[in-house]
Amino acid sequence: MRTAWIALGLASVFVATFALAQGAADKRRSGYQDMGEALQKMQDDDTANPGMLFVQLGEQLFGRPAGAANKSCADCHGAGSMKGVAARYPAIPKDADKPVDLEGRINLCRTANQRAEPLAPESRDLLSLEAYVAFQSRGQPIAPPSDPRLAPFRAQGAEIYRRRQGQLNLSCAICHDDNAGKKLAGVTIPQAHPTGYPIYRLEWQALGSLKRRLRNCLIGLRAEAYAYDAPEYVALELYLMDRAKGMLLEAPGVRP
């Protein structure tokens, strides 16, 4: 069984690389490409992108001592050392046996190394730290780890993605695979590649995580959203990042 998972993992790596090598044949699109020019400009201009307010806050938090250890993130992680980190999460941290996403990783650092309380989901501090870390991977290709232990979690994510849910009996795949590019009311359905997280979503008028976005979709389906700490989100994030492998990170993204 284990061998089978590894074989499957290798196969998907090959397919993804092949798709990238094809260049123009890669039909994947970032949600950025589906936005109007005004919003693209808002994201591109760091002096106008509201997400940059949070990157700046995150940078300040990164250097501020916290917890019983009275250590800051910067005490262990030097300037620029977070480059590439956001491109490979979720991942299984050292000495752990299950994957965490970037927010989970930040909170692990807080509890284990700073000996501080974890930051609340979607709190400004957590999102700002995440934005600051993700910003350092901007322009880098999404590079999920090849860790074979991730395969069953990814498979679980893929299963949730294709599972019909809620009163409307729809799945993620029905909209974002089968009908991407069509109009749901006036809105172009994106392919759901997590290239810009955390994103400044105009509907929220705030920065938010991929989890918050996934919850939006579940609520739209009239399905019961998972709790913020549910492993289902990490599984979905693993699957989505693998699906977007090789696409470039844009954090902090702006989306309608």
Partner: peptide, 8 residues
């Protein structure tokens, strides 16, 4: 905490 981003 600075909650302002100025570009000049």
């Amino acid at each position: 905490m600075t909650n302002v981003l100025i570009n000049a």
